[in-house]
């Protein structure tokens, strides 16, 4: 039985895998564990329900792939884990042997909130490194069909907009707002987005929150299996409350040699505009 070494982190958790009938595999990515099981006529995808985020530490940094697993392991799963497992079955006339497990960015924008407000004086420009949780996609390689995708960590929902009437439904995450790349911990289930903010306005910019349009970003991987997205540039012009967002083409300058492994979920629109940075009005009183 060939089982990849659990401690060998040189191999990424994503990539194609061939599974024989009546065998399965296990992917441990960050706080999430995902099992795949193949029979002649169905694919079964099990994953630990993300309903209780307290059970797992969101920053848990794991990346382990084990396959093939015998059917007994999969059959024993529901009892063994003692936790809520979500099972989905996909039936086919004849299942394909090859599946591909892929990372993907979130399906909604992510609102990042620095732990402490960051002030950017007039005329300054900074680069912030933000990391966002990835989704795990299970694809059939030959027919290029998406079986299922699960978030590696279920981020909390949030609302981003000028009022409770208009705005956008987003994910929320907190960030340490790191300015140096060396300080950024490397996590297998998160992708890094370089965010360049330029404050061309005459007053200081208080960065209380920032909305990253991750559904318009592509995902890149470096030869050392780090995941990056395109650079997002935000420019705040004089007499403007929000900022103009621009998504730079190609991999970020921090990871020039990176290859694209996932296209953006949604085509990027010209002139994305955001009314970002500050708290959302005082409309939420009693």
């Amino acid at each position: 039985m060939e089982t990849t070494d659990p401690d060998d982190h040189s191999e990424p958790w994503w990539g194609p895998v061939a599974l024989d009938e009546e065998t399965g595999g296990r992917w441990i990515v960050g706080p999430t564990t995902l099992w795949l099981y193949r029979t002649s006529q169905e694919w079964r995808v099990l994953h630990r329900s993300p309903a209780d985020p307290t059970a797992t530490d969101p920053m848990l940094n794991r990346s382990r792939v084990s396959h093939p697993l015998p059917p007994e392991t999969i059959a024993a799963l529901p009892e063994m884990e003692g936790e809520a497992l979500e099972t989905s079955r996909y039936s086919f006339r004849q299942t394909e042997a090859r599946v591909s497990v892929q990372p993907a960015l979130a399906d909604r924008p992510v609102v990042s909130r620095p732990e402490h407000p960051l002030h950017i004086p007039s005329g300054e420009s900074v680069t912030l490194y933000l990391s966002t949780a990835l989704w795990i996609q299970v694809r059939l390689t030959a027919s290029d069909r998406l079986l299922q995708e699960v978030p590696s960590f279920r981020m909390s929902d949030t609302w981003f907009g000028p009022s409770t009437v208009e705005g956008e439904y987003c994910y929320a995450t907190r960030t340490a707002g790191r300015l140096q790349l060396e300080n950024l911990p490397r996590r297998y289930h998160r992708a890094i987005t370089p965010l360049r903010i330029k404050n061309a306005a005459s007053d200081a910019l208080a960065l209380e929150r920032v909305q990253l349009p991750v559904q318009h970003l592509a995902l890149y991987t470096t030869p050392t299996h780090q995941l990056w997205t395109q650079t997002v540039a935000m420019t705040r012009s004089p007499n403007q409350d929000g900022a103009d967002i621009q998504i730079r083409n190609g991999p970020p300058s921090e990871a020039q040699e990176a290859d694209r492994i996932q296209p953006p979920r949604a085509p990027s629109k010209k002139g994305l505009f955001t009314s970002t940075f500050s708290a959302v009005g005082t409309l939420f009183g009693s």
Binding site: P50, P53, V111, R113, R154, M155, S156, D157, T158, W159, F160, T164, A172, R209, V280, L283, F284
Partner: peptide, 8 residues
Amino acid sequence: NPLCLEEP
């Protein structure tokens, strides 16, 4: 609770 919005 992930369904509970962080903001508002």
